[in-house]
């Protein structure tokens, strides 16, 4: 009963030789190397590298096993090692993207389908009840009304533009649910972003401010949003985020309308808004359609107010125009953290 496979963990950026071996195995399996992965679990049989799986935070990527060894035991051992490694790194709850044809395989590894773009990609999570329990929590926060609005914002940082959008949406709805993107990869931390949104929407009576979650605009549901510097926008990835929203989040809170600002500057966000109409309204789905309402940006001194403009001004140290762009609380925050 010798365990013929030996597993261990490497950083492909520090172990060049093994990184190249992983690359070869991935190529053999028609997969691309993801440069963002800092930890790979690799399995060897003797000296030969026969299995690999990358871990990028809470997302499992680049899972490959040698085609001649596709038995249950190698793959299951590999996935078991990844799951254990992730727990050591603080992630019990994992996600993975895969081609829909592999869903049943990963099902055997304890992953469950969350959303599928037919023929392209499926997002899975490693718990049978993750999204269900989350929806249950949301359902408790349901508010009565026929027209229930929702805004999901990163607010990096919160501007007059966000405030305008929120007030307009609230005035048009019986109730408005605002979510702040939770992923902490933006210039401003989640804690700060949430606090500024909270201050900026104070006084709107028919509004619930929610913490974001891994199920909306997260690295798991929408990875490209956070890798815009690559200049690529993943067709499928924004679809996954929107399908999840329509399938689980909107029904849980009874959301009928989703409000979004027009986006003149950021290509990724602009694409996301276009996709939103497709996946929330047009596409076939068992879940009811959600009407997308695009709200034109407010303009201040002839520039559309946006968070990216605020960040640009910050970088250039131009605080003079700031009071026209952000509400008082954001302004105070920027002065105390950025003014020199």
């Amino acid at each position: 009963m010798n365990d013929e496979f030996v597993f261990y963990t490497i950083n492909p950026h520090k172990n060049w030789d093994e990184g190249a071996e992983i690359q070869r195995l991935l190529t053999l399996c028609d997969l691309d190397m993801d440069e963002g992965i800092e930890t790979f679990v690799v399995g060897r049989q003797g000296r030969r590298l026969v299995a690999c799986a990358g871990l990028d935070g809470d997302i499992v990527k680049c899972v490959a096993t040698a085609p001649d060894l596709r038995g249950e035991s190698l793959s299951l051992k590999l996935m078991g090692e990844v799951i254990n490694l992730a727990v050591e790194q603080g992630h019990l709850h994992l996600f993975l993207f895969t081609h829909p044809s592999n869903v049943s395989f990963f099902g055997g590894c304890g992953f469950y389908e969350l959303a599928e773009v037919p023929g392209y990609v499926t997002l899975m999570e490693n718990t049978p009840v993750g999204i269900k329990r989350y929806s249950d929590q949301l359902r408790k926060l349901t508010q009565p009304g026929d027209k229930i609005g929702c805004i999901v914002m990163n607010a990096n940082p919160f501007t007059f533009g966000h405030q305008y959008l929120v007030r307009l949406a609230a005035s048009q709805c019986d109730w408005l649910h605002v979510f702040v993107v939770r992923e902490d990869v933006s210039q401003f931390s989640y804690r700060d972003r949430y606090a500024l949104v909270s201050a900026g929407v104070a006084g709107v009576p028919n509004l619930t401010l929610h913490h974001g979650s891994e199920y909306m605009v997260s690295r798991a549901t929408f990875p490209d949003y956070f890798f815009k510097e690559k200049g690529m926008v993943g067709e499928c990835c924004s679809a996954i985020d929107l399908i999840l929203f329509r399938k689980y989040i909107a029904p849980a809170l009874g959301i009928t309308h989703r409000f979004v600002g027009t986006e003149p500057f950021c290509k990724t966000t602009r694409k996301y808004n276009d996709d939103m109409k497709q996946w929330l309204q047009v596409a076939d789905s068992s879940a009811p359609a959600v009407t997308v309402v695009e709200v034109p940006r407010t303009v201040s001194s002839n520039i559309a107010i946006s968070a990216s403009e605020v960040r640009r001004l910050l970088r250039s140290g131009d605080m003079a125009k700031m009071p026209a762009l952000v509400p008082r609380d954001t302004l105070n925050f920027l002065y105390s953290n950025y003014a020199t």
């Binding site: 299951l76 051992k77 078991g80 019990l92």
Partner: peptide
Amino acid sequence: KEALAGTLESSDLLVKVTP
């Protein structure tokens, strides 16, 4: 704290616990 025990292999089970 989050923890797990077990494996996904046949005749075994994986148990995950969360606070």
